[in-house]
Design a protein around this nucleic acid. Structure first.
Length: 560
RNA sequence: UGGCCCAUGGUGUAAUGGUAACACUCCGGUUUUUGGUACCGUCAUUCAAGGUUCGAGUCCUUGUGGGCCAACCA
């Protein structure tokens, strides 16, 4: 064990300081509080890993709390999807909570605020209230209803709750300070009327608490010690604390809100509205399309939970604006898959090769290592015969010495098989090469230990015996947007940057044993990249998604 | 004519007043039956200007640049 004391991020430092200044370890409690109004995406992963990571680090409970205060947007379907994604990422929440569990408590507290003269019912239109609210540079003015009597407020609020009013006609407001430089403190709305069924409380309520009134109090009810959220909530902290002051009991834990910068990933968008647009416009097929930055999309793409966790770990957490290059994410999948993905051979762009001196009809089952990074992965048998496919790009009639592949008159190693030499090739009437004729060195078989087999030949190709090949649909993905930050241009819509070539579907030929592959299986097609079996796969049709290509230094050389 | 937050290489993060670190990317090299992996090497005096200090990326001031705040959304 090396003594590499990893430096703490500023969030961990806050917790450490609190541990020094009075908190005991068993008082620590965290929460991940999604609104069940959509699918989780890569941006949420940071928050999930931050909160659950803290839980793991301090052996503290982490609640999964659904912030379900707006029945107009929230659905059970999203609750289920979120639970699935968090669990898939590998985290276990202590208890599953819902802000809606606290509706009664919140209501009771609101009544007390009214009694203390700290909240009032306003029956102006939202336009009137907006006008009175002022602007960031101009103070607001008091509502004419601000000094309504406590008795009247109580009656009105009761009526709101009982459903006596139409939507939009009355709200309950906290009486704070219309002159505050913080707009959120200008008598914020605590409750609004919504005659809508809630996915959990159904029609029990027709008044619903607003985020600010709900969030801190929910943290307090759950005795969450640290409530971490993104920077755009920084201004809410003052209000969070004000609401907490109204109900706080000194013998209890007082939750502390702190903010961090949301992580922005390059070449994608993450807002629900924009992702929905991609689905609706048919740019992608679904919310879990492998090109989507959703957790479900990444999962389908073949990303592993480990890769995503390592990614969030590597990018850290801070307060400054950021745009994280996708290469950091891609590195993590490659890094993990390199260790765990079995190697197989698959030809994506086939060119037929015939070994003229190999006996017709003969088949040899050759040994192939499953993973050079992991001896315990063992080996498998791969069929070799007279005719097989190689990649079109692996043959040239002539090429310079930098081309370590098959060319006329030169030798190359077939992975796990023989050394072959290209003798001639045939072309169709358009001049396209359609077949290469080779000879092989029978004594050069891989692993045979003969002098010939030990010969060093520059270049090793993957191949698939034609007679044994299994056809598979392969979906090759590229970044969804050509611009690194598609939705930050003032003069251009993000849809203008959609990459028209983000998906390419081809037919590939793969090793026969892949017929047994199951949905979700991840493999490396040697020299080609990492692939996983898509859920569209059926008994008669194999479908692979390319998760990510291998690093390709040849492509860089070839470009020059 | 406001308030709050932020500023370290191409990217992300660290350095807790003691002489800029780690990862990715890029470029170059070694090993290799994957042009993969692994390994080695190159790439910044920290937005600017002042100030405090023996010493400043770190503290102060003033600029500059960026983000956030006026939903009965979260």
């Amino acid at each position: 064990m090396s003594e590499t004391t990893k430096s703490l991020n500023f969030i961990e430092q806050i917790v450490e300081e609190d541990l020094v200044n009075g908190y005991t370890k068993d008082e620590l409690r965290f929460r991940f509080p999604p609104e069940p109004n959509g699918y989780l995406h890569i941006g949420h992963a940071s928050s999930i890993c931050l909160n659950f990571g803290l839980g793991l680090r301090y052996n503290a409970p982490v609640n999964l709390r659904f912030d379900d205060t707006n029945p107009a947007k929230e659905e059970q379907e999203f609750v289920d999807a979120i639970k699935k994604d968090v669990a898939w990422l590998g985290y276990k929440w202590d208890t599953e909570r819902y802000a809606s569990d606290y509706f009664q408590q919140l209501y009771d507290w609101a009544v007390e605020l009214i009694k203390k003269g700290k909240a009032y019912v306003d029956d102006q239109s939202s336009e009137e209230m907006a006008l009175q609210k002022g602007t960031p540079t101009q103070p607001g003015t008091n509502s004419p209803n601000r000094d309504r009597s406590i008795e009247e407020n109580l009656q009105l609020f009761e009526k709101m709750k009982n459903g006596d009013f139409e939507e939009g006609t009355h709200v309950l407001r906290a009486k704070i300070d219309m002159g505050s430089s913080n707009m959120l403190m200008r008598d914020p709305i605590m409750y609004r009327i919504l005659h809508k069924a809630h996915h959990r409380t159904n029609t029990d309520w027709c008044i619903y608490p607003m985020y600010d009134w709900t969030h801190g109090e929910s943290d307090y009810i759950e005795q969450v010690s640290h409530s971490f959220c993104t920077l755009e909530f920084a201004m809410h902290r003052e209000l969070y604390n004000w609401f907490l002051d109204q109900v706080y009991d000194e013998n209890k834990i007082r939750p502390k809100q702190r903010e961090f910068a949301r992580r922005n990933l390059s070449h994608t968008v993450v807002s629900k509205r924009k992702l929905a647009q991609l689905v609706e416009k048919g740019v992608v097929k679904s919310w879990d399309d492998p090109r989507m930055p959703t957790i479900s999309g990444l999962r389908r793409r073949g990303y592993t939970p480990e890769a995503i966790r390592n990614f969030t770990d590597a990018i850290g957490i801070a307060k400054r604006d950021n745009l994280i290059d996708v290469s950091l994410l891609e590195f993590q999948v490659r890094d993990h898959l390199n260790k765990v993905a079995p190697r197989v051979m698959g030809v994506l762009d086939p060119l037929k090769v015939v070994i003229t001196n190999y006996p017709e009809g003969e088949v040899e089952w050759l040994d192939a290592e499953n993973n050079p990074e992991d001896e315990s992965a063992g080996s498998r048998k791969v069929p070799f015969s007279r005719e097989f496919y190689i990649e079109k790009e692996d043959f040239r009639e002539e090429a310079n010495k930098k081309f370590f592949r098959l060319k006329l008159g030169k030798e190359v190693r077939l992975k796990n098989a023989y050394i072959i030499k290209a003798e001639s090739c045939t072309k169709d009437t358009d001049g396209n090469i359609i077949e290469v004729q080779c000879t092989y060195d029978p004594k050069s078989k891989s692993g045979s230990g003969t002098e010939e087999s030990l010969r060093k030949v520059k270049g090793t190709l993957h191949w698939v015996s034609i007679k044994h090949a299994v056809q598979a649909e392969v979906r090759l993905y590229d970044r969804l947007f050509t611009d690194e930050s598609p939705d930050t241009h003032k003069d251009k819509d993000f849809m203008e940057f959609v990459n028209p070539d983000s998906l390419k579907i081809i037919t590939a030929y793969v090793e026969p044993h892949l017929k047994e592959a199951k949905i979700g299986d991840r493999v490396q097609f040697q020299r080609m990249g990492y692939f996983c079996v898509d859920p569209d796969t059926t008994a008669g049709k194999l479908v692979f998604n390319r998760t990510v290509g291998l690093r390709d230094s040849w492509a860089k050389i070839a470009q020059k």
